[in-house]
C-alpha cells in the first residue's frame, strides 16, 4: 500500500490527483460526444486557440497565470466559430477545426511578437506541456468548480445531446433543439479545455478528450456504457499515471497519457477476441 499512500502523503500530489481526476472525468464524458460527432481533432484545435487567447492576454499586460482566464472568452468564440462553419457549410469537422486552429495559433505568435522587449519572458514550455504537480490550491478550486459545472450540465443534457449526435434531423423532428445543444457542447468543451491546459498543457489536453472516449467506444455496446467505460478509463489512467510517474521519476502528464494509450490498446485487443 506504501506504493500509493507514500506519494499521496504530499499536498502537491493530492492536489495533482484531484485535478487529474476532475479533468479526466469531465473530458471523458464530453469526449464521447465530441468523438461521436467526428470532432476528435477539436481538442487540439481549441487548445491551440487557447494559446492565441493567452498571447492576447500577455500582450495586454497580464501575467501567464491570469492570461489563461482571458483565454476563456477567446477560445469559446473560436469554438462557436467552428460550430457556425460546420452548420453553415458542407465542410467536415477536421477542416473547420484546422482553419481555426491555424488562425488562432498564428494570432498567438503574432501577439507574442508584438510584446515590448522589456516585457517578462514567457515560459512557453510550461504552456505547451503544463505542470499538474504545480497546481496551486486556487487553481485546483477553479478546476474543480469548472469540471463539476460542466459535468452536471452535460449529464443533465445527456439524453438530448445523444439524440442530436446520433441523427440531428431525427432529433429535430422529435423537438430536440439540435443547434443550441451543439453550440453549448462546443462552448463547454472550450471552457473545459482552457482549464485543463492549466494542468496538462496545450499539447496533451486533447488526449484526455479523445483516448478514454475512443477506448470506451470500442468496448461499449450502448452510448451509456461507452460513457461509463470512458470515465473509468480516464480516471484510472490519471490516478495510475500520477503515482507511476512519482515512482519512476518521469513527467506526470506524459505518463498519464501513455497509461490512457495502454488502456486503448487493451480495449482494442479485447474487442478483437
Amino acid at each position: 500500500m506504501d506504493l500509493i499512500t507514500e506519494p499521496l502523503s504530499f499536498a502537491f500530489m493530492q492536489r495533482a490527483l484531484y485535478a487529474g481526476l476532475a479533468v479526466s472525468v469531465v473530458c471523458a464524458v464530453i469526449g464521447v460526444f465530441v468523438v461521436q460527432r467526428g470532432l476528435a481533432f477539436i481538442g487540439d484545435g481549441l487548445a491551440h486557440a487557447c494559446f492565441g487567447g493567452i498571447a492576447i492576454g500577455l500582450y495586454l499586460g497580464t501575467d501567464v497565470e491570469n492570461a489563461v482566464w482571458m483565454a476563456i472568452p477567446f477560445t469559446v468564440l473560436i469554438a462557436l466559430g467552428i460550430g457556425f462553419v460546420l452548420r453553415s457549410s458542407h465542410l467536415r469537422g477536421d477542416v473547420a477545426t484546422g482553419v481555426f486552429f491555424s488562425f488562432s495559433f498564428a494570432l498567438g505568435i503574432l501577439f507574442l511578437g508584438l510584446r515590448s522587449a522589456a516585457a517578462r519572458p514567457v515560459n512557453v514550455e510550461s504552456l505547451l506541456f503544463g505542470s499538474i504537480l504545480a497546481v496551486s490550491p486556487e487553481v485546483l478550486n477553479v478546476v474543480l468548480i469548472v469540471s463539476a459545472t460542466a459535468l452536471v450540465v452535460t449529464l443533465l443534457l445527456w439524453s438530448r445531446l445523444a439524440y442530436a449526435i446520433f441523427d440531428p434531423e431525427l432529433a429535430a423532428v422529435s423537438g430536440v433543439p439540435v443547434a443550441a445543444l451543439e453550440y453549448l457542447l462546443l462552448g463547454q468543451t472550450a471552457v473545459v479545455i482552457v482549464v485543463a491546459v492549466k494542468t496538462v498543457g496545450i499539447v496533451l489536453v486533447s488526449s484526455f478528450i479523445v483516448i478514454p472516449a475512443a477506448a470506451g467506444r470500442i468496448l461499449g455496446t450502448t452510448l451509456a456504457r461507452a460513457t461509463m467505460l470512458a470515465v473509468a478509463i480516464g480516471a484510472a489512467g490519471a490516478a495510475f499515471g500520477l503515482v507511476a510517474s512519482y515512482h519512476l521519476d518521469v513527467p506526470t502528464g506524459a505518463t498519464i497519457i501513455l497509461t490512457h494509450c495502454a488502456c486503448f490498446a487493451v480495449a482494442l485487443a479485447l474487442s478483437r477476441r
Binding site: S159, S174, T222
Partner: peptide
C-alpha cells in the same frame, strides 16, 4: 430497442 424508445421519449435513453 434504444432507437425505438428514443422516438417515444423524444430523447436518447440511458436505460
Amino acid at each position: 430497442v434504444e432507437l425505438i424508445t428514443a422516438a417515444v421519449r423524444g430523447r436518447w435513453p440511458a436505460h
